[in-house]
Design a binder for these strands. Sequence first.
DNA 1: ATCAAACGTGACTGAGGTGTCATATTCAGT
DNA 2: ACTGAATATGACACCTCAGTCACGTTTGAT
Lengths: 213, 213
Amino acid sequence: MSNRYASAAAHPGPGAPKTARGARTRARVLKAAESTFGAMGYHRAGISDITREAGVAQGTFYNYFAGKEEILRELVRDMGHQVRARLAAEVVGARDRLEAEEKGLRAFLEYLHENPYLYRVLQEAQFVDESIYREYYEAFGRGYLRMLADATRKGEIRSGNNEVRVWALMGMSNFLGLRYALWEGDVPFDDVVATISDLFRHGLAIDGQERKP
Amino acid sequence: MSNRYASAAAHPGPGAPKTARGARTRARVLKAAESTFGAMGYHRAGISDITREAGVAQGTFYNYFAGKEEILRELVRDMGHQVRARLAAEVVGARDRLEAEEKGLRAFLEYLHENPYLYRVLQEAQFVDESIYREYYEAFGRGYLRMLADATRKGEIRSGNNEVRVWALMGMSNFLGLRYALWEGDVPFDDVVATISDLFRHGLAIDGQERKP
DNA sequence: ATCAAACGTGACTGAGGTGTCATATTCAGT
DNA sequence: ACTGAATATGACACCTCAGTCACGTTTGAT
């Protein structure tokens, strides 16, 4: 597909577009919503900001979306697909789970750096409608969990509560992304990835010490 | 102190209170803001919701705070002190860094479970004024970094980029807290802590394997 | 007891922004 | 070319809410 927003036409709004022109317009509005929400934030952004950015009249907005909240929902879904597809693509060819984690973390940092709006839109969505946000991370987590389970079966990683691990890993990526991909680029992604890779390979402890030696 | 909001009187508003009554009122408004923001969210909450909750008139609000944003700032500062104090207290007596991490994570999960408003207020603050949010995590991170540096010096943990580690650890706690302390209690904190402890002691890899054996 | 400063009140207003609607234009099938 | 459906328009009605203000009440120092 030539336009990453085109698939959105599949989700019915107050009236799903029925002509090519309609689909184009809807896509333009959705794209404008991404940059407007991303730049101004969901609450500061008005519908008129979105439609101005899209180059359409205010009324047009309501031909395709029930309101501000619905377009946000649409956007989060769309962005979720994007990230997952990107990460999945970057991770193929990894020889084991640990290498996949490295590649995945680096890809995530790069993606966030290129698409800084993702973070803002997603995190703000959390307080507009929690279910959008949960849906995103639960979808993400399900895929992640499958991979960890595979790796456990193959003996690539220690056995343990993989669900808890998934949430820990997502949290790590999230904060590292915020700090090093969005806020300040004072540490190269390679260093970040190397540090986390070391954590995965050896833990924090000196040589796997136990509490009671 | 008998009232956890009393210290807030130290921060000057449009007019810092000059009588005991004024200090009490200001504290009541700040407390009401916490529960109102926590329950309704920053944007949905109106000043009138806060003052109603506090049992004062709308005008009273502006005797102590310049506006909605300023009271949020105050609140985040106050809450930051609370958490750090609590975690510091829970962690004393740990025999090494790894034990401290365990105690700290458990304490954080418990704190979040008892004070669910912290999460919401803090995360929403991020999009109202990013500097409030950065200030919180940077303060938190500075303390954390000191402890990791100490632990490195004592030979309790592997050497590595402790700053990156700090952000990774904060991210983990944040997401684990959201998932297991706020959303669903389907996994006991003990299991969460044990899983993360295992990660710190041994990593994810089977027995510290290297990529090229 | 007195008084000036501090505090408390709540109705009001003005800005900002969502969603509507009557009307105009474009599309696509015949 | 013709025509009904789909789409686009933008002015406007309506509402929410932050912040103000003039006036009444309480405090605490002398």
